[in-house]
Design a protein around this nucleic acid. Structure first.
Length: 610
DNA sequence: CCCCCCCC
């Protein structure tokens, strides 16, 4: 084996049995190992959507499972490391996965690439007693201290007090661990992370007592973790930690995160304690600012209620500042609604609360990225800011620039589809190909003949629009939609018990639609009118009053377009006659890319293709 | 150790 470096014999067994050996000497050693095999592991869904590499490492005697930290993936992808490579593992940590120690490789340096397997490693067997007395690794690294677990006597006594100075004295940077490597099983770490989303100080009072807390999300290029400080730790760290700055943080407690309370993508969370060390770091290279995982607004229908998501869009409208009274606490809370649109041609309402609602100012329809906003089902889909959400106006990211360009060029003239609510709490709010019926079938299969409404989808073309009444004058107060009556020079809403100088017209459209099998009359409300006419009802009413032929043109233009519909069929009695009426729950312009994909898929899988 | 995030 001449010419090949020495492997750090025995290290695999020590690591495999290291639960009783939480010694910094072991964890700070830099063993030389051979990388025997690589396997790409697809994302599990829980984490960030990145492939990972499982690597079998060998010390010549035993082999051991390990994972590459994702920031090292490029080494595999660029073929810098591969089967047989011998490397110094410069930094690593261990997690316990299904009762087994799993080595996580955080940094490595390749010594030599060879295909020759060194030694004849076998599996680590049993749990040799006295693991701590196995010979130390050949290349001990700098030591830092442990703060909880008693390490084997020799190591612990000598090193405990040396915590902070060690790194400086060696003239080496402190060993920085990526956030993704943090786990409760390992406590010698320092992270270098940007503080994002610092909350206000909140107080609580409950049966178990009272206190105060604040929390902050810490982020580096490997991931993010939520950190919380309670009581005395609030005084220690609240002022020190500032939004957007980068800190070296160590000795915080790592706990399992309670997933249902967090939208931060980490299994764990940190608690700042009295002895936690937080030091601002001025070298902020490679510490990202914010990470987004944007969902198109059209895609919100597939995000479940109460989940959080990231959205980026143009603020089409800024609502007035208003207030609501919380039912639970009867507190009065300021709120403001933004209407945000994106290139999916959907609009969604985002609610800001409290100070943020009061202080919101936007000139000129800015692009805003929202991180961690909560998805609600009001009017189909709505979004709401939470304390852990953040809002980033005109962020300097490609998505924002692309949106700006699109909106300024074309988007501002567009009409946007809204997520619409279900009327009865049943299905039928989304277009679903599995639910598509041809119109002949709809009319003959006794759809909607029962007492309950029934739902179906259709792909059909507008053939005719009843144009005598296409809209009604509605109450302008948000969400009321009630018809108002003209009284003198004002318009009265019975429901709101208020008069308004002007109504807001809302569409109520009846149209004949047709597919290859037949024709049916569908009716739709405001969103349907806006989709087919491409303008709000007020505008079309205005056109009609000014110029009837121009109005007819607008209506004519809507004829002949094909849409995907989600409909509700329901029995209805009118003038003593019972018939079935078809209401449009959702109308979707055809997405030809999607339609083509669907058809191509049918062709590929049909008998004709064989 | 919080875990509320509101209303239509």
């Amino acid at each position: 084996m001449a010419g090949l470096p020495q492997l750090t014999r025995g290290i695999c067994a020590r690591l495999a049995n290291s639960e009783n050996e939480d010694s910094e000497e072991l964890f700070n050693s830099q063993p030389t190992l051979q990388l025997l095999s690589f396997k790409k592991v697809p994302p599990t869904g829980g984490g960030n959507n990145v492939d990972r590499y499982r690597v079998i490492v060998s010390d010549g005697e035993h082999f051991l499972q390990s994972m590459l930290a994702t920031q090292l993936n490029h080494l595999v992808e660029e073929d810098a490391i591969g089967k047989g490579a011998v490397a110094v593992i410069e930094k690593f940590t261990c997690n316990i996965v299904q009762g087994k120690r799993l080595l996580i490789i955080l940094a490595l340096r390749v010594l030599v690439k060879t295909t020759e397997k060194m030694g004849s490693p076998g599996p680590v067997q049993g749990r040799p007693e006295g693991g701590a007395s196995t010979p130390a690794a050949e290349t001990p690294g700098p030591s830092t201290s442990t703060n909880i677990t008693p390490a084997p006597p020799a190591a612990a006594a000598a090193q405990a007090p040396r915590q902070q100075t060690q790194a400086n004295r060696n003239g080496r940077a402190a060993a920085i661990y990526p956030i993704e490597s943090l786990s409760p099983y390992q406590n010698h770490w320092t992270i270098k992370a940007r503080a994002m989303n610092k909350s206000d100080i909140r107080t609580w009072v409950n049966q178990r007592g009272e206190g105060k807390l604040f929390s902050v999300t810490l982020m580096d290029d490997s991931g993010e973790i939520r950190a919380t400080a309670f009581n005395a730790a609030v005084d220690l760290f609240y002022d020190k930690i500032q939004e957007g700055k980068v800190y070296l943080i160590s000795k915080a407690k790592v706990n399992l995160a309670k997933k249902k309370f967090s939208n931060v993508n980490n299994e764990y969370e940190l608690t700042f304690e009295r002895n936690t060390e937080v030091e601002e770091c001025l070298d902020v290279t490679d510490v990202p600012t914010v990470k987004f995982n944007f969902v198109p607004i059209s895609g919100l229908q597939d995000v479940s209620k109460d989940a959080t998501c990231d959205i980026i869009g143009v603020v089409k409208e800024v609502g007035e500042l208003s207030t609501i009274t919380s039912k639970a606490t009867s507190k009065v809370i300021p709120k403001r609604e933004l209407t945000v649109v994106d290139r999916s041609n959907y609009a969604v309402r985002v609610t800001l609360w409290g100070k943020q609602a009061e202080q919101f100012e936007a000139t000129d329809q800015p692009v805003i990225a929202f991180k961690g906003v909560k998805v609600g089902d009001f009017q189909g889909r709505s979004l709401s800011m939470m304390s852990s959400s953040s809002m980033h106006m005109n962020p300097d990211i490609p998505e924002a620039h692309a949106l700006r360009g699109w909106f300024d060029a074309a988007g501002s003239d567009q009409t946007f589809q809204a997520h619409t609510s279900t009327f009865t709490g049943g299905g039928g709010i989304t277009f679903d190909r599995a639910e598509v019926r041809n119109l002949n079938e709809v009319k003959t299969a006794e759809f909607g003949m029962s007492d309950k409404p029934e739902y179906f989808c259709a792909q059909a073309t507008i053939m005719h629009i009843k144009n005598d009444t296409i809209s009604y004058p509605a109450c302008p107060s948000q969400g009321c939609n009630k018809k108002v009556v003209e009284l003198g020079d004002s318009w009265r809403c019975e429901k709101c018990d208020k008069s308004y100088p002007k109504p807001q017209h809302r569409y109520m459209v009846s149209m004949a639609v047709s597919d290859y099998s037949g024709q049916a009359w569908f009716s739709g409300f405001n969103d349907v009118g806006e989709t087919i006419f491409g303008m709000p009802a007020d505008e079309l009413v205005d056109i009609r009053e000014r110029d009837d032929s121009q109005f007819n043109q607008v209506v004519e233009r809507a004829i002949g377009t094909t849409y995907n519909f989600a409909c509700r069929a329901k029995q209805d009695s009118y003038n003593e006659a019972t018939r079935v009426r078809y209401a449009i729950n959702r109308i979707m312009p055809l997405n030809y890319r999607e339609e083509t994909k669907y058809l191509a898929n049918i062709l590929t899988h049909s008998d004709w293709a064989r």
